[in-house]
């Protein structure tokens, strides 16, 4: 830690040093494609948000019209309300389950290596897989999930076909898909806890809960805050699983801002309008990130 801190100070250039011109060259190889293909289109998108544009012809300046339209569009409101719900379901589930799974795998149980593989594996598959496998699992009449729920006397739940459940259905698949990242972050942090501290706590007669509460949890605090932030940002941008599982329906009940942006841009070719909604989403992500950092007083 101290070595790292030292080099950070060093790198900040507290001590006057020569300018390494070669640094620019080394950075350029990455920075040029990054600015060309990742930043420029975004800047253009920001400009388009203030115009009316359907690709053919040049964008026509319209000032804030797209924004006022977005504020009056009930489907925009629904999409933004939905991501807050997604956030409320997915973020706590991913954080709590990820932590529990990591605590389990961190113990020296037989087969814990296998468990680690299984918990992380979903993260590496593509959205297409989610779209097919989970739509099939959550099928109302022939899906596996409803089949096993019926053993508990639970009636068939229309996971993806009703306005009441579709958001929950998509969330379940999302938790399965996203959990690996949180799990690995927690696991790495747990493995960083020096064994002696835990051993000392055992010797002191601390029980499992006390050890978790007073030894492990304080150590994990920064990681928890990071997991929550990362998962929240990724949930605010939820798209692929929505697109492949429900396409936002029924009645927009599982849509998300990015899904709505996609359908306005690609399906309706209203690029100015789509970009304006994207800016609203960006503002929301920014606000939430700052609010969270302020509340948790953590440097992420």
């Amino acid at each position: 830690m101290s070595a790292a801190a030292h080099s950070v100070d060093d790198a900040r250039g507290r001590t006057p040093r020569e300018i390494d011109k070669a640094g620019y060259v080394l950075v350029a190889f990455f920075a040029i494609p990054f600015f060309l293909f990742n930043i420029m289109p975004v800047l253009f998108g920001f400009y388009v948000a203030f115009t009316r544009w359907s690709i053919v012809g040049s964008p026509k300046w319209e000032g804030l019209r797209n924004f006022t339209r977005a504020f009056n569009d009930q489907w925009v409101a629904v999409a933004f309300k939905n991501i807050l719900l997604y956030g409320l379901i997915i973020v706590p589930c991913v954080t709590v389950l990820g932590l529990l799974f990591a605590l389990f795998v961190n113990k020296r149980y037989p087969l814990s290596g296998l468990a680690r593989t299984l918990f992380f594996a979903p993260t590496v598959v593509s959205a297409t897989v989610i779209g097919l496998v989970w739509v099939w699992l959550l099928d109302t009449q022939f899906g596996l999930v409803n089949h096993y729920l019926s053993f508990f006397g639970i009636d068939n739940i229309p996971w993806l076909t009703s306005t009441r459940w579709s958001l929950v259905g998509v969330s379940i698949a999302s938790v399965w898909w996203d959990l690996g990242l949180a799990f690995v972050l927690f696991l790495a942090a747990l493995q960083d806890i020096p064994g002696e501290i835990n051993d000392a706590a055992i010797v002191d007669g601390a029980n499992r809960w006390q050890r978790f509460r007073y030894v492990i949890l304080p150590h994990l605090r920064p990681v928890i805050s990071m997991v929550v932030t990362l998962q929240l940002i990724s949930t605010l941008r939820i798209f692929s699983q929505v697109y492949v599982m429900t396409n936002g329906g029924p009645a927009s009940s599982s849509s998300s801002p990015i899904h709505y942006i996609y359908s306005m841009a690609i399906v309706r070719n209203l690029f100015g309008y789509a970009s304006a909604i994207a800016i609203l989403l960006f503002a929301l992500i920014l606000a939430i990130t700052f609010a969270q950092r302020f509340l948790l007083k953590e440097r992420v």
Binding site: W75, S162, T163, R164, G249, P250, A251, S252, S253
Partner: peptide, 10 residues
């Protein structure tokens, strides 16, 4: 989307 609101009773 508007009609789906009707079919679902919303």
């Amino acid at each position: 989307k508007t009609l789906e609101g009707v079919w679902s009773g919303q």
